[in-house]
Simulated scan of single mutants.
Amino acid sequence: MKKVASIPTAIPLIIGIIAVSFSSIFVKWSSAPASIQGMYRLFFTALLMLPFIRPHLAELKSLSLKKTFMLFASGFFLALHFLLWMGSLKLTTVSSSTIILALEPVFIVIGAFFIYKERTSAFAMFGMGVAIIGAVLIGWGDIGVSRTNLIGDLLSVFGTLAVSVHMLIGQKMVKQVSSYVYSFVVFLSATIVFALYNLIDGVSFTGYSGKDWGIFLLLAVVPTVFGHLLFNWLLQYVSATTISMSILGEPVGASLLAFVLLGEQMTWFQIIGGLLAISGLILFLNADRMKWTSKRKRDVEPLKSVS
C-alpha cells in the first residue's frame, strides 16, 4: 500500500468511505428534490473552499480553454451522477441504490484500459471480483422487486456510469492542475449545471424547511468535503480504479447506517455480502504489496538453493 507523505493511503480512504456512506442517509432525510439537494450540496462546498482559494488564484487565471473545458466536463458528469443517483434513492432502498455503485470499478477498469492503457493485476482483479460479489449480495433481495424499484435501480446504474466518467477525467486532470483547483472548478461547474437544470425544469430555489437547509449543509461537509474532495486529492497518489474500489465500502457503511437510522432491515445475504465486500476491498488495496512479496520470494529462493 502506498503512502501519502508519512500517512498510509488506507487512512484517508477509510475516512472517505465513512463520509460518503452518510450521503444516502442525508438524501433520504430530506424532502427536497434531488436536483436541489445536489445543487446546494455542491454550492455550499464551493463556498467552504473559497477562504482557501487565494494561493490558487494565479493558477485559476492561467487555465487554458482546453483545461477549463475538461474541468467543466468533469463537473457536468458529477452533477449527472448526483442527479441520477440521488433521484434513485427516492424510488428504492439505500442498499439497492448503493449496491449498484459496485459497478463503478468495472466501468473504470474498462475505461482506464482503453483510454489510459492502464492494466490491473490478476490479484487485484480477484479482490475486485470478491468485493463486487459481496456488494451484489447486500442488495440481492431488494433489487427489481417492483417497477418503482426497477426505475430506481436503472437511475443508479446510469448515475454510476456518469461518476465513472467523472473519475476518469479527474485522473488525467489532477496531473495537469492542483487537486484544489480541480475540485473547486468541478464543484462550481456542477453547481451551474444543476442551477440551469432547475431553471429549465421550473424547480424552486427557495421555500425549503430549516431541516432541509441543514441537510444541504451536512451533504456539503460530510460526504463532499470529507468524501469527494478527499478522493479528488488522493487521485494525485493512487489511480481512479483504486478510488472506485474503495467506494465499494459505501454499500456496506450505508446499509448499516440505514439499518440503524432508517430502520431498513438487513438480511443474512446482506451481512455476508458486507463481509465479502470488505474482504475483497482489503485484497484489492494490498495487491501491490502481495505482488511485491511474491516477487521477493522468487528472488530469494534461488539464493537459498545455492547455500
Rank of each mutant, 00 (worst) to 15 (best):
L91C: 06
T93M: 09
T93S: 15
S95W: 02
S97K: 00
T98D: 12
T98E: 13
T98C: 06
I99K: 01
L101V: 14
L101P: 02
A102L: 06
A102P: 00
E104C: 06
E104G: 02
V106E: 02
F107V: 02
F107P: 07
F107C: 06
V109S: 14
G111W: 08
Y116E: 14
K117W: 11
K117M: 09
R119V: 11
R119W: 08
R119Q: 13
T120F: 05
S121M: 08
S121A: 07
A122G: 04
A122L: 15
A122F: 12
F123A: 08
A124N: 07
A124F: 06
F126I: 10
F126Y: 04
F126M: 11
G127A: 02
G127D: 06
G127N: 06
G129R: 03
G129A: 14
G129I: 02
V130M: 01
V130I: 09
V130Y: 00
V130S: 02
I132F: 05
I132G: 05
G134N: 02
G134I: 02
G134R: 03
L137N: 08
L137T: 05
I138E: 03
I138K: 04
W140M: 13
W140C: 12
G141F: 07
G141I: 04
D142E: 15
I143A: 15
I143F: 15
G144W: 09
V145R: 10
R147M: 12
R147C: 01
T148V: 11
T148Y: 01
T148K: 09
G152H: 05
D153H: 05
L154T: 13
L154A: 13
L154R: 14
L155H: 03
S156D: 02
V157I: 13
F158W: 10
G159D: 00
G159H: 03
T160S: 06
L161P: 03
L161A: 13
L161I: 06
A162I: 01
S164P: 07
S164W: 02
V165Q: 05
L168G: 03
G170M: 02
G170Q: 00
G170H: 01
Q171G: 14
M173V: 10
M173S: 04
M173A: 04
M173P: 12
M173Q: 10
V174L: 08
K175Y: 10
K175V: 02
Q176T: 08
Q176I: 08
V177G: 10
V177H: 08
S178H: 08
S179R: 13
Y180H: 14
Y180I: 13
Y182T: 12
S183D: 13
F184V: 09
V185H: 05
V185C: 10
F187A: 11
F187C: 11
A190M: 12
T191Q: 12
T191F: 14
I192P: 15
I192E: 09
V193S: 04
V193D: 10
F194M: 15
F194V: 06
F194C: 13
F194L: 14
A195K: 09
